[in-house]
């Protein structure tokens, strides 16, 4: 993903090289943030804040692998902050169009591409009832396909906690899918 040489060059305070680091890091940070928050603008804000934090704390990193885990951790924590700011909407209503969209998409080729707006709708509707931790575990495990060790290192949750959160997240989404599809 990102080589150690680029990180070393950025540590010396070289803003030009830091631009390259932003270029390589932003896409995957955006992917995680978007899947957590379900909103493009908020996800971009999280990516910006993440890169500012990276610039301030870059001296702590001494390997490319540690850098990736560290980025995930910062993104997830900033997403937690955003999710806490959101007001809880008890009257969240099911969007019929979204379910029709999901049904159409899964009935065709699985490699069908979707627009960000379509993905956003699906994520928000499926993960509405999940807590921030459950969301994080679901996104990192099922969507980002990280191992339990990596998820544990990123979130600080124990392996048994990860299993429990993942089980509940899948169950909650499954109930929604069974009800509306």
């Amino acid at each position: 993903m990102t080589d150690l040489k680029l990180i070393e060059e950025c540590r010396s305070g070289n803003l030009e090289n830091f631009r390259k680091l932003i270029e390589t890091t932003s896409p995957f940070a955006f992917s995680v943030a978007f899947r957590m928050l379900g909103e493009e603008d908020q996800a971009k804000d999280v990516v910006q804040e993440t890169m500012i934090t990276v610039w301030q704390k870059l001296k702590k990193i001494n390997s490319a692998k540690a850098y990736k885990t560290w980025i995930y951790r910062i993104v997830i924590n900033k997403c937690y902050d955003q999710l806490r700011k959101r007001k809880i909407n008890p009257e969240f209503s099911v969007n019929e169009n979204t379910w029709k969209l999901i049904s159409d998409k899964i009935s065709v080729e699985p490699s069908t591409e979707m627009e960000n707006s379509e993905t956003s709708m699906i994520i928000r509707i499926l993960t509405n009832r999940l807590s921030p931790k459950q969301k994080a575990v679901f996104v990192l495990s099922d969507l980002e396909q990280l191992s339990q060790d990596e998820i544990s290192e990123i979130t600080g949750i124990s392996k048994s906690g990860i299993k429990a959160n993942l089980h509940y997240a899948r169950k909650s989404i499954s109930v929604m899918v069974e009800k509306y599809l």
């Binding site: 803003l15 830091f18 631009r19 932003i22 270029e23 932003s26 896409p27 955006f30 992917s31 978007f34 899947r35 493009e40 996800a43 971009k44 990516v47 910006q48 890169m51 500012i52 610039w55 999901i102 998409k105 899964i106 699985p110 490699s111 069908t112 591409e113 979707m114 960000n116 993905t119 699906i122 994520i123 499926l126 099922d142 969507l143 396909q145 899948r170 989404i173 499954s174 899918v177 069974e178 599809l181």
Partner: peptide, 30 residues
């Protein structure tokens, strides 16, 4: 159905597009 929904979300990577705006904002802030 659940597996197919999860596969759909997994295979659809959110697209960032251009990173120019983010770079500009971050460099300005720094």
């Amino acid at each position: 159905k659940l597996d197919r929904v999860i596969n759909l979300l997994r295979n659809t990577k959110p697209l960032l597009g251009s990173t120019v705006d983010i770079e500009r904002e971050v460099i300005n802030e720094i």
